[in-house]
């Protein structure tokens, strides 16, 4: 019996590999972002003094400033990491599965 393309994709050995690898990568990066952000929020909520400590004794710039900038940069870098891998490695795998099951 002729299978549907969807069923052939499901049966393709690489499909499980694709969803597992991409899913794992997305989950790890999501967790990293959530931990960074909620770590920051909890710090703001429970220990605002830490973020308000001057970087150097006698200085004005506090720990919170570089921490904030680093979080913004981290958000950008994390999206870059994901797009880089998803658009090359994962998409190649995806394309191969689609070609094989046409």
């Amino acid at each position: 019996m002729e299978q549907s393309p969807a069923a052939r994709i499901r049966a393709h050995p690489k499909f499980a590999e694709l969803t597992a690898r991409r899913g794992r990568y997305a989950t790890v990066l999501s967790i990293v972002m959530l931990v960074i952000y909620y770590g920051f929020i909890l710090l703001v909520a429970f220990a605002p003094g830490i973020l308000g400590t001057p970087l150097v004794a006698g200085g004005v710039t506090t720990v919170g400033i570089p921490v904030g900038v680093v979080i913004i940069l981290a958000a950008f870098v994390l999206t870059g990491l994901y797009v880089n891998r998803a658009n090359t490695e994962f998409d190649a795998l995806n394309q191969q599965i689609l070609e094989d099951t046409k």
């Binding site: 997305a26 989950t27 990066l29 999501s30 972002m33 959530l34 960074i36 952000y37 920051f40 929020i41 703001v44 904030g68 979080i71 913004i72 958000a75 994390l78 999206t79 994901y82 797009v83």
Partner: peptide
Amino acid sequence: IYSIGFLVGWPIILF
């Protein structure tokens, strides 16, 4: 704090 909150939704949308 607000700026960071408005930004960090984006990586989550992507992932």
